[in-house]
Design a protein around this nucleic acid. Structure first.
Length: 335
DNA sequence: AAGGTGAACAACCGCAACCAT
DNA sequence: TATGGTTGCGGTTGTTCACCT
């Protein structure tokens, strides 16, 4: 049996919402509350699919939505969260009050991912043999020069909460970033993507990760990767980890992944009794953890931090290839 | 001036999880 | 437990607008 269509699409309107439709939807939800999206359009008198109504409400009409440009602070948060969570936009959005998953997804696709790629491309190394499906640097520079469609500088048609269309300048101060300047997140990119860097010291970690829940996770990852330092790696994880991963690679089976689906949890990592000797985990293993969907409580703060730790990565080659991979992981699944 | 191009973002679509029965 | 309806999520497409040639 096929899946039932979400709605009867015959005669339903598609495309951009009009101010009138917004008004109807707003009034209906104000009276009846949100939910029951399937039946809402009919009850409200809208010729729209329920899903469309829901999306319009969530992404545009809700009163608690922030308007205006993504701030530098928000951008840094997105970058860091994406490095940890990947394309889990809703989870990322949950850390940014007033921002929707759709907004963050769009922002990432149109701003951030390109900047990561651009940086990677603009700092070629001998080891840079990976073919990236990204715009060429010259092309990017051309765009920068053109200073096109800066969100802030663009007059934007915006509807307010009453559904009336208004013309407004950006609701925030326009931040025009010179093409040759680096924002904070550019610094983040440049730091973590610099192929010349062979080790990551704690000062760099601090610069990469502002205090916050995410910092804990990457801290732990780095601790696990550190050589000659104490690490929060469960003994059994260390003993079987590399072997299992090698077997997995050889067999191509997802068995190991499944077995390790939950990965080392925050709890495991943070428990004092799990604290064991120096981790002998190479960066390949580290990268593979990306697949594991760490079951972390991002709100948990781990207290352990060796301020003198040298986060030199075990197994890194002299060209920094592994570090590049590692930093790529940090930035997301971009490669 | 007009057409082309790319950035930004709104909206759609399909899938899967969740929930009620 | 199985089934069907509903909702949420993430990928993708479509539209608009500003700038370039």
């Amino acid at each position: 049996m096929g899946r039932a269509p979400c709605c009867d699409k015959v005669g339903l309107k598609k495309g951009r919402w009009t101010a009138e439709e917004d008004d109807i939807l707003l009034k209906y939800i104000a009276t009846h509350g949100e939910g029951s999206w399937r039946s809402l359009p009919k009850k409200a008198g809208l010729l729209r699919c329920g899903k469309s109504c829901r999306l319009r409400w969530i992404n545009y009409l809700r009163a608690d939505l922030k308007r205006g440009n993504i701030t530098q602070e928000e951008e840094d948060t997105i970058v860091k969260l994406h490095a940890s969570l990947g394309n889990r936009w809703s989870q990322i959005a949950s850390h940014l009050p007033g921002r929707t998953d759709n907004e963050i997804k769009n922002y990432w696709n149109s701003h951030l991912s390109r900047r990561v790629h651009t940086y990677r491309k603009s700092t070629p190394t001998e080891s840079d043999s990976v073919q990236l499906d990204v715009p060429k640097v010259a092309e990017t520079e051309k765009r920068k020069k053109a200073n096109r469609t800066n969100k802030g500088s663009k007059k934007k048609s915006v509807k307010n909460n009453t559904g009336k269309e208004i013309k407004e300048e950006s609701t925030k101060e326009v931040e025009v970033v010179p093409a040759n300047s680096q924002t904070n997140s550019d610094e983040v990119f440049s730091t973590v993507l610099d192929p010349e860097i062979e080790s990551i010291d704690d000062e760099m970690i601090s610069s990469l990760l502002s205090p916050g829940p995410l910092g804990s996770e990457i801290d732990a990852m780095l601790l696990c990767a550190s050589e000659g330092n104490e690490a929060w790696v469960p003994q059994e994880e260390r003993e079987c980890g590399d072997q299992a991963l090698n077997e997995e690679r050889e067999s191509g089976a997802g068995q190991v992944n499944e077995e390790r689906e939950s990965g080392p949890t925050g709890n495991q990592l943070g428990q004092e009794e799990e604290k064991v000797g120096p981790a002998q985990i190479d960066t390949t293993t580290l990268l593979d953890w990306d697949k594991l969907d760490w079951d972390l409580d991002l709100g948990q703060q781990w207290s352990y931090c060796d301020s003198n730790a040298d986060f030199r990565l075990h197994g890194m080659d002299t060209n920094g290839n592994d570090l590049e991979s590692f930093t790529s992981w940090l930035m997301s699944d971009l490669v």
